[in-house]
């Protein structure tokens, strides 16, 4: 089984979100970048397929050279090889087109991407990629088992879980639950050393189109001060929620 894991290089969850150039660009100054958490759950599941079912695991990102440490980390976690498509993408559709061009040559059986990234939260890439390739698609994936060409998987839905079956090839949008937090693989020294020997190939971008562009960022309006209510006067809280906030 050939697996591709699409990873996104995103600001660490504790990052201060600020903008520069007249609020037209994200301020990367002092920001740590990490593997997008949803992608990391997917990568871990892929490594299990590698360890238990002999799958070959490739990781890919669409981004500039600053993304390479994230790819090296994926190799240290256990991926067999990495690709970077050399483009700073403008929107999710552009990323999906770039990935689809790569996949057409490679014929992956299974493609795993995070259900969404924590920077632009677009939730576009896995679905669009599946549609461009004509693969089946399952997002918010909580469980995934593959025997031969048949897939049994489950998806988190609003208020529950849905079980599905289908055949490969498949694109999956990964999230927590596919593996647990405690299952995430922390690269050890050996993995880090081996990662240096593994191939990380930079491929030029293909022609692609853009459907949306960002002209400006803004931060939420500052909040008013908190109103404190004495713990012995809970009636007052109910009164405020009913008469002032009008939410109960």
């Amino acid at each position: 089984m050939k697996i591709l894991v699409c990873v996104s290089h995103v600001p660490d969850t504790t990052s201060k979100i600020n903008f520069v150039d007249d609020d037209t660009a994200f301020d990367k100054n002092g920001v740590q970048f990490i593997i997008n958490p949803n992608d990391e759950f997917g990568l871990t599941r892929a490594i299990w397929f590698q360890q238990k079912q002999g799958a070959e695991v490739t990781v890919i990102t669409v981004g500039d050279p600053s993304c390479e440490p994230t790819l090296r980390k994926c190799l240290a976690i256990g991926a067999d090889r990495a690709f970077r498509i050399d483009l700073s993408p403008t929107d999710g559709f552009q990323v999906a087109q770039q990935l689809s061009a790569h996949c057409k040559d490679e014929n992956y059986d299974l493609i795993i991407a995070g259900r969404e990234s924590i920077d632009y939260n677009g939730a576009m890439v896995p679905g669009m990629l599946s549609a461009l390739l004509g693969y089946s698609f399952l997002t918010n994936c909580m469980a995934l088992e593959i025997e031969g060409r048949s897939v049994k998987a489950s998806r988190e839905i609003d208020g529950g879980i849905e079980s599905v079956s289908c055949d490969l090839p498949l694109v999956v949008g990964a999230q927590k639950g596919l593996v647990e937090e405690k299952d995430l693989i922390i690269p050890n020294m050996r993995g880090i050393m081996q990662a240096r020997q593994k191939s990380l190939t930079v491929v030029p971008a293909v022609d692609s189109s853009i459907q949306s562009s960002i002209s400006k960022f803004e931060k939420p309006a500052p909040k008013g001060a908190v109103k404190m209510v004495d713990a012995n006067q809970i009636d007052q809280l109910i009164d405020l929620l009913h008469n002032e906030a009008k939410v109960i």
């Binding site: 979100i17 920077d119 632009y120 939260n121 562009s213 960002i214 002209s215 400006k216 931060k219 939420p220």
Partner: peptide
């Protein structure tokens, strides 16, 4: 649109 998990908004043109 909201982005950065609701820490910011952006103005997108399509």
């Amino acid at each position: 649109r909201s982005c950065f998990t609701n820490k910011a908004f952006n103005l997108s043109t399509l």
